[in-house]
Write a protein that binds this DNA or RNA. Structure first.
Lengths: 222, 222
DNA sequence: TCCCGTTCAGTGATGATGTCACCAAGCGGG
DNA sequence: CCCGCTTGGTGACATCATCACTGAACGGGA
């Protein structure tokens, strides 16, 4: 009964039956513990991952040791950059980290190649996923270049709060989310706290007035 | 004798003969005049372009009307983002503009699909090109987030000077290259001029001491 | 339990960059 | 030659980055 994970990927639902059979037979469901570096400089992945549960954070690490979060791969999405990473032999400076325990379908490179070759639907699935990521990157570029940090911080807080009303992250980690400096985050969060939108404690942030943050976040463009 | 453009694309040289035949027979060499918008919001391209001559500038246009140059496609490269653009039906906010007159091989979407399906080499070619572009985007993000503008401007000047020692661009256009404001470019260029590295005139910049710019550009990271 | 080293957060000073408002110079078309 | 548009220059100020330093919070031995 391992086959039914396909239902979690709308783009694969209409897969040709023969292809579908190959996909389910030649791939494996794996689990990866939280914190694992899935790919990174000098660590090419051997598989394309389709996430069933959990979350992968993809971030850029610069030579100066600074980090910036590029995007996250959520359950139901695929980690397509690994495919480009598989084929191009330049080293990526980006790395993917399991942000939670992850359960995923692992498609070995030869099988991936086979599927791309044989199935129009699978090709669509892959190229659509690419498109999605590239759009994400465009958005990151636009935000960093043109958006005020207070607005971006408010947006990020809303984005990272997953129903819990709380975010477990240090100021340093929030700075990496935005590609800015820790001090900037500290000061902005201080301001948010003065306005009664959040409450801070070491290593976590409680959101107590989401609507205030949302008003700021909505200012968006200039 | 139209077939020999393949020699300009190292990644296609070892193409399987049958595939090579399909590629040359079903694609067309087209020319596009300078200034043409090749793809953009609301304008999906019908073809994948492989550039034989000329240059395409790909830039992001934000809602606030601001622009930022993402990368350039040069002769011998392919404009792969158009493939993602072809398949994914979200509108891109990026646009591609012919920066010079362009001569290119146009591969219609069905032929592209066919080639991806049939040829390992062609798949490699495409995914490698993707990888290259994504790496470019990572670099743009890192530069915008962490690099000083004077250094980036010096690098860009060196990059855009193509043997002529001169760059035809307004300060506004240079600002778009870096994702910064015109005033910042004006002031930095003023400083470069005071140092004797460049001479400015309306709409163009003469580089008269490349080594000075290179020293600054080499400071790179922090 | 108490040290004690480490991580995390707060803050002032200062430099770099972005924004706004405005002016002047250059260029081209009537 | 005049006029309007584009381009570039500049001061004032806001925002953001960096540096240097402080103290608080936490956790792991002794």
């Amino acid at each position: 009964m391992p086959a039914d994970w396909i239902a979690q990927f709308p783009g694969l639902l209409r897969l040709e039956p023969a292809v579908r059979e190959v996909l389910t037979r030649k791939s494996a469901v794996i689990t990866v513990p939280e914190g694992t570096v899935i790919f990174g400089p000098g660590k090419s992945p051997e598989n394309l991952l389709l996430l069933l549960e959990g979350r992968v954070r993809v971030q850029q690490v610069s030579e100066g040791g600074r980090e910036i979060v590029l995007y996250r791969v959520e359950a139901g999405q695929s980690c397509v950059l690994t495919t480009a990473c598989l084929l191009a032999h330049e080293d990526y400076s980006a790395e993917g980290i399991a942000e939670t325990d992850v359960r995923a379908v692992a498609i070995p490179r030869p099988v991936f190649d086979d599927l791309v070759s044989q199935s129009v639907m699978f090709r669509n699935f892959i190229f659509t996923a690419y498109s999605r990521r590239i759009t994400d990157l465009f958005q990151v570029i636009e935000d960093i270049a043109f958006q005020r940090v207070d607005i971006r911080l408010a947006q990020k807080l809303i984005d990272l709060e997953r129903g819990t009303g709380q975010i477990k992250a240090t100021h340093q980690q929030m700075a990496a989310e935005l590609g800015t400096a820790r001090e900037v985050v500290s000061r902005q969060l201080g301001e948010f706290q003065r306005r009664g939108w959040i409450r801070q404690s070491r290593g976590s942030i409680d959101l107590i007035d989401l609507s205030g943050l949302e008003r700021l976040a909505a200012l968006d463009v200039g």
